[in-house]
């Protein structure tokens, strides 16, 4: 059985752990660079990206995490996407830079603009998951303002990409871990 790591510095890492177990993975919470050695892939959960950056920097985890994301399957949701992105705006902040996208933080607005919507995903997603609908929970969500040529869009909302893939990296600006469906997590599990 493959082991999925969940970066457990702060945020909704427990919700991810529950979803990963449902798709048949063993789960290990990663709180240090050493923890990366024992996992076949890693989820970067939702939470506050500024807090996660402080904790990553304090523990010297930025470089090991970047090296991990360059070779192993990684799945980021919301704050996780902000950590993975090449450029971050609103405000500008440091990131791992492994996913060729530009992301604007809190781009829909504050909590009153948070929303749950039903999305019709793109054809490749429908083929791989057999699902023709995604329930997307956006919470103070970011928007991908640019996606590079190597990035495949799997779902859009209001004409901007919200679920994308680049090689071993999967990234959702919404929270599949806060829904009953495990389709997106199954997509990640298939990479391990």
């Amino acid at each position: 059985m493959k082991t999925a790591g969940v970066l457990a510095l702060q945020g909704d890492f427990e919700a991810h752990a529950a979803a990963l177990k449902k798709v048949g993975l063993k789960v290990s919470f990663v709180r240090s660079a050493d923890g990366l050695r024992e996992v076949d892939g890693l989820v970067l959960p939702g939470g506050e990206s500024t807090t996660m950056l402080k904790l990553l920097a304090h523990d010297g985890m930025m470089a090991p995490l970047r090296a991990f994301a360059e070779t192993k399957p990684v799945f980021g949701t919301c704050a996780g996407v902000i950590l993975l992105a090449r450029e971050v705006s609103h405000p500008v902040q440091e990131s791992l830079g492994v996913l060729d996208v530009s992301v604007e933080r809190n781009a829909y607005g504050r909590q009153n603009e948070s929303r749950i919507v039903a999305l019709t995903p793109e054809e490749p997603y429908r083929q791989r998951t057999g699902a023709d609908r995604i329930e997307a929970v956006f919470i103070r969500a970011p928007i991908l303002r640019r996606t590079g040529p190597g990035v495949t869009v799997l779902a859009r909302y209001q004409d901007t990409p919200v679920l994308v893939e680049q090689g071993n990296i999967l990234a959702a600006t919404f929270h599949p871990e806060l829904t009953a469906s495990t389709d997106v997590h199954a997509l990640f599990a298939a990479k391990l």
Partner: peptide
């Protein structure tokens, strides 16, 4: 309800924090 899920969802994002 969607409203309650969104309210709890933001609280979920703050877990482990100060």
């Amino acid at each position: 309800s969607e409203t309650f899920r969104l309210k709890v969802g933001l609280a979920d994002m703050l877990k482990g924090g100060v």
